[in-house]
Design a protein around this nucleic acid. Structure first.
Lengths: 117, 117
DNA sequence: GCCAAGTACCTTGACAGACATAGTAATATG
DNA sequence: CATATTACTATGTCTGTCAAGGTACTTGGC
């Protein structure tokens, strides 16, 4: 994967990324894994271990729910669906991201004069 | 502090934030602590424990160096200065931030149609 | 028919960053 | 002279991410 991005810069946004994918409809682990790679134009890969850890966390907290897909055709797939709480969490998290982005711009790109202006 | 920002969203950017402050001239722990609060318009507080941990890390890795200030006037102050490596790291980290911001926008705000466009 | 690659899921253990908490000690302020 | 602020440090904990490893089924090429 060329033009990779460091893990640490994404840290803390994993849940939001997953919720965003699920906003577009129910999906299962491996598909979500692939979708995130595609969404990032192959510049970021959320590792499977991280994904499945997040699924468990999000389900336990009631932000997503899971169900097994029809196993008669193809391999077994565990689908995930956003709950109402999950939708709310996504909206909240997106706002937080917008906010954090703004602050980080000040903290990372801002020079000394920016304080005085 | 009103309109706070979650820790996790800043995680991984601590070093860059410190380096940015030091770009504006040598400074010491407590002043840097205050400056970050001001730079963020009081919306973010980098905890002291985190700061001093980062100082040690950055110094060990050669990105900053430290020296004790003149103790004859006022309390003891340990000043930090950017090294050349530190300046390079800052530039690199700022680019990474710009890059990460772009990707995260796609991953957090992007809908399904964005992939097809 | 068989093997490699891809699909699909999951667990365990390790690590690193951020912080809560606690502490020391000097200076400034009223 | 008591209190707040300045200033630095150490210890232990928590959480998210990942590396590494594993199981099992399906698809495609030969």
């Amino acid at each position: 994967m060329a033009g990779k991005i460091s893990t640490d810069l994404i840290r803390g946004h994993t849940d939001t990324i997953i919720l965003n994918v699920l906003r577009q409809g129910d999906s299962y682990g491996y598909e979500i894994y692939k979708k995130i790679i595609e969404l990032s134009k192959r510049q970021y890969e959320l590792k499977e271990a991280t994904l499945y850890t997040a699924f468990r966390r999000l389900e336990q907290d009631g932000y997503i729910l899971s169900y097994w897909g029809d196993e008669t055709q193809g391999g077994r797939r565990k689908y995930y669906r956003l709950t109402d709480n999950g939708k709310q969490l996504y909206e909240q998290s997106r706002e937080n991201w917008t906010f954090a982005k703004c602050i980080l711009d000040k903290l990372i790109e801002g020079g000394v004069n920016d304080v005085l202006k």
